[in-house]
């Protein structure tokens, strides 16, 4: 089985966020970029599928600037991916999701693939658009909210479940397709030291970004803001417990926007 897994370098989840000099994006000075979150789970899932079906290969692909994209590809190779392809984009600029999907599609189209695995969303912009955009470009179906993914080699079919609000859907699909994995539900392995050393010497194929398709629309970052520092609680005034409850629920829904 040929598995392509798409990954994106993102700031280390433990990074203290700071606003960049021009106020439009996060400050990346000194920030470490890593393979994390759903992407890390996607690589793990690809490797598990490879181990379950002998003769399979995992090809990791990423679109982004140097050096972070190369580092994330090397980290994926150290975990056990067989080949790596890098679509290098201009420095210091993370491509927007649709451009990233276009760049990835070029690399994926050139690689044999029964399955294209993606994480549900990246840990920084959390757009969650690449899997479906990639599928649109490749002309294949995409499935989100996927848990429990298996390859039935005898039937040459993918079996998986989608964890939706109404319940668990069971699917059986002939390849190829794009699958976006749901919550990080597997336990990603840690690359061993010898593999880390070896990965530095492995080749990374490069595919130039497609200069052809110029987007007719663009999404531009205008402002990047951190929440204001805490200044003390807004105390809720009430005459009855019911009134306190109503006011709090209202505030959580409409002001804080955290009500489930």
């Amino acid at each position: 089985m040929e598995i392509v897994v798409c990954v994106k370098p993102v700031p280390d989840p433990e990074t203290r966020l700071r606003v960049g000099a021009d106020g439009t994006s996060v400050d990346i000075e000194g920030v470490k970029f890593v393979l994390a979150g759903y992407d890390e789970s996607a690589v793990e899932q690809a490797l598990l599928l490879k181990e379950a079906t002998p003769g399979s290969k995992v090809h990791v692909v990423s679109a982004g600037p140097a050096p972070r994209t190369e580092e994330v590809l090397r980290a994926s190779l150290a975990l056990g991916c067989d080949t790596a392809t890098w679509v290098e984009t201009p420095p210091a600029v993370s491509p927007d999701p649709v451009s990233a999907a276009r760049a990835l599609a070029r690399a994926v189209a050139a690689t044999p693939h029964d399955l294209v695995l993606c994480g549900k969303q990246a840990g920084d912009d959390e757009a969650g658009l690449v899997p479906a955009a990639l599928a649109e470009l490749l002309g294949i179906p995409d499935f989100s909210l996927v848990v429990d993914l298996r390859w039935d080699a005898a039937a040459s079919r993918l079996r998986f479940q989608r964890s939706t609000e109404t319940g668990l859907e069971r699917w059986e699909v002939s390849p190829p397709c794009v699958i976006a994995l749901q919550q990080a539900w597997n336990d990603p392995r840690t690359a061993k030291l010898p593999a880390i050393l070896k990965s530095r010497k492995l080749p990374i194929a490069k595919v130039p970004p497609d200069a052809g398709a110029v987007p007719t629309g663009a999404s531009r970052a205008a402002k990047f803001e951190l929440p204001p520092p805490r200044t003390g609680a807004k105390m809720i005034e009430f005459k009855t417990p019911e009134e306190a409850a109503q006011k709090l629920v209202q505030l959580l829904k409409e002001e804080a926007k955290v009500f489930p």
């Binding site: 989840p13 966020l17 959390e126 970052a221 990047f224 803001e225 929440p227």
Partner: peptide, 28 residues
């Protein structure tokens, strides 16, 4: 919201077409 809700970004969507998905429960 971005970075797991730890920051907020403002973006301008330009061009003849646009597509927007609204965050659930963020609007009444």
């Amino acid at each position: 919201p971005v970075f797991g809700g730890r920051a907020t970004e403002t973006r301008r969507l330009e061009g003849p077409h646009a597509a927007v998905a609204v965050r659930p429960h963020a609007f009444a």
